[in-house]
Amino acid sequence: MERPLRAVSSPLTVAVLTLLAEKARHPYDMKVTLRERHIAETVKMRGGSLYDTIARLERAGLLTPTETSRAGSRPERTVYAITEAGRKTLRELISEFVGEPINEFPRFVAGLAHLAVLTPAEAAALLRRRADHLAAESERAARELATAAPDLPRVVLLETEYLQRMRDCEIGWLRQTVADIEHGHVAWPEPESPSSPAQEEKRS
């Protein structure tokens, strides 16, 4: 039975199926390869999330175990291979992720929409702090890109390049916006004075 695409639609699903589309692998090999390719920038992997995803994809018929082996005293390792249904689903998911822009309701943009609740000084301080955090991340990512395994083709690092470019663009926008706020170039609503009890009584 075919599973609805949304039931397996996640960045980690795409990462696992992509690795298995290259060759059959065991989970530890997947984890090492994801780390080498800096996929952690786009995929959340906590605790047993990789193993949970593998189990879910196996139940959906998108991958299948091919062999189980043991090396010395190490735990058994099960090797998985992608199925034809898995290849079809992978292509559909990539087409959806890349070709169909959606509003993901980012938390930062939601905060910007209500920035006038703060004073200009408070807003500028928070935007500057965010820019500093992003600058540190940008430096770290640049070092990782510079030391990426030389045999990795650029195509498997495109998402890291993209995130780095987006980060640098945001830093530039944040720094400029902080300067505009501090120089009074961003109009700010005047805070309303609290009404006295007498004024409230007069209005009523």
Rank of each mutant, 00 (worst) to 15 (best):
P153C: 07
H185D: 14
V16R: 00
A124N: 02
A187K: 11
H185R: 14
E2Y: 12
H133N: 13
A113D: 05
T177D: 05
P75S: 05
E192P: 11
E2P: 13
L174G: 00
V117I: 12
D151F: 08
L127A: 00
V43N: 02
A135N: 15
L12A: 00
W188Q: 10
S138D: 13
F97G: 04
R87Q: 15
V79H: 11
R77L: 11
V178T: 06
T177Q: 08
T177A: 08
T42L: 11
L157M: 03
L90K: 05
L63P: 03
R6K: 10
V155G: 12
V8D: 01
A60M: 02
V178R: 02
S10H: 09
R3A: 10
L63A: 06
R91T: 15
L12Q: 03
V155K: 10
E161V: 12
E58G: 05
L163I: 08
L63Y: 05
P120D: 09
E137A: 09
K31F: 06
H114G: 01
L145R: 03
K88Q: 13
H38Y: 08
T68V: 13
A123P: 04
R56A: 10
L12F: 05
I39K: 04
G184Y: 15
V16H: 00
L5K: 13
E41F: 04
I39G: 03
L57N: 02
L20C: 07
E36Y: 07
K202I: 15
H185Q: 15
D29H: 13
T18E: 09
E137H: 08
F108Q: 10
L62W: 03
T66F: 04
R70Y: 00
A131N: 02
P106S: 08
P197Q: 14
L12W: 01
S195T: 10
Q199A: 14
P191Q: 12
A123E: 03
A198G: 11
P191A: 06
R143C: 02
A135C: 13
L158N: 09
A146E: 06
A187S: 11
A135H: 13
I39L: 06
E182P: 02
P4N: 09
A136S: 14
W173C: 08
P189G: 02
Q164S: 10
G48C: 08
S196Y: 14
A125L: 15
G172Y: 07
R165D: 11
N103C: 05
Q176D: 13
K202F: 14
Y162M: 12
L12D: 02
M30G: 03
A71Y: 03
A60K: 01
L126I: 15
V79S: 08
E104C: 04
L62C: 03
D52A: 12
G172W: 12
A141N: 09
V16Q: 01
E137M: 10
V156A: 01
E190W: 13
E2A: 12
E84F: 09
T89R: 02
L174D: 03
A198L: 15
R91G: 09
E104G: 00
A24H: 14
R59S: 07
T42K: 06
L163Y: 01
E92I: 09
T68H: 05
K23Y: 14
R128M: 14
A142V: 07
D180F: 06
L157Q: 01
H114R: 07
E76Q: 06
P189C: 09
A198C: 13
L158A: 13
